[in-house]
Design a protein around this nucleic acid. Structure first.
Lengths: 131, 131
DNA sequence: ATATATGCAAAGCTTTTGCCCTTTC
DNA sequence: GAAAGGGCAAAAGCTTTGCATATAT
């Protein structure tokens, strides 16, 4: 059976749409469970990932981020502010076609990430230009 | 001017086609410069990345890997052995088309990675099945 | 001389782990 | 009362950094 801690960690992750780090989840969960420990948050996030209820995000050298949205989707990572946006569009047929046979490997899945300047930072840049 | 250490680190990274970690570069460079320190390797790899001569690879929670090949290419990461293979095919026009305008963001680039079982592990699996 | 880079060791951060206690069935 | 999970603190692992020294222009 799921512990109270586990349930609230899962709920919290589902509610947070910011692709939070373990520590950010911890800070949020602590509002409801002041005695929870960071270790418990890590243990449960790892378990959720293992069981397929969450995914890991982020690049080597960065803190791991977690995402409770396990539907196939893509991300835009802003080079300026680091925010991660969800992009939902259909699977890309060209990629699926490529996956059928790549150099004799068995390709099962792919990840696609976009980089650039997000709309928020774009607006800020404009303001500074005009100032 | 580039120091001897820097030159050899760069050469070594270019020669290694395994997408090595900093420590793997260090081990290799040490064969030529026995007194080099791991800190120097890190400092130089970071500088090479900053200057655009190398790229970082890998996911959060893993050790960073480095790649001196900065031409646009893709990777296949084997779920079984962790090896990273280079895949060289043309830019995917569908993705380029998508990048033109995603939700008002300025998208500049993308990364695409494939997952699956590489040809080596595929062969090994077959052998075990027949044994 | 002045700036830059190295080697070494210590520090920093994120994440995991051991141990003992608590909760649940 | 066994099994699973939590809290706490220590440990682990990768990476960065401070400092004194060396190298290069």
């Amino acid at each position: 059976m799921a512990s109270i801690q586990r349930t609230i960690i899962m709920q919290t992750l589902q509610e947070m749409r910011t692709h939070p780090t373990a520590d950010e989840v911890y800070q949020q969960v602590k509002k409801r469970l002041p005695n929870i420990s960071l270790g418990t948050v890590y243990r449960n996030l790892n378990q959720l990932v293992r069981e397929g209820f969450a995914k890991r995000l982020g690049h080597a050298g960065e803190q791991t981020r977690f995402d409770a949205n396990t539907d196939k989707h893509y991300h835009l990572i802003c080079d300026t502010c680091g925010r991660i946006y969800d992009l939902a569009f259909n699977q890309i047929s060209e990629i699926n076609a490529l996956m059928q046979n790549i150099d004799e490997h068995d390709v099962a899945d792919y990840d696609l990430e976009f980089y650039g300047t997000c709309k928020v930072c774009k607006q800020l840049e404009k303001k500074h230009e005009n100032a």
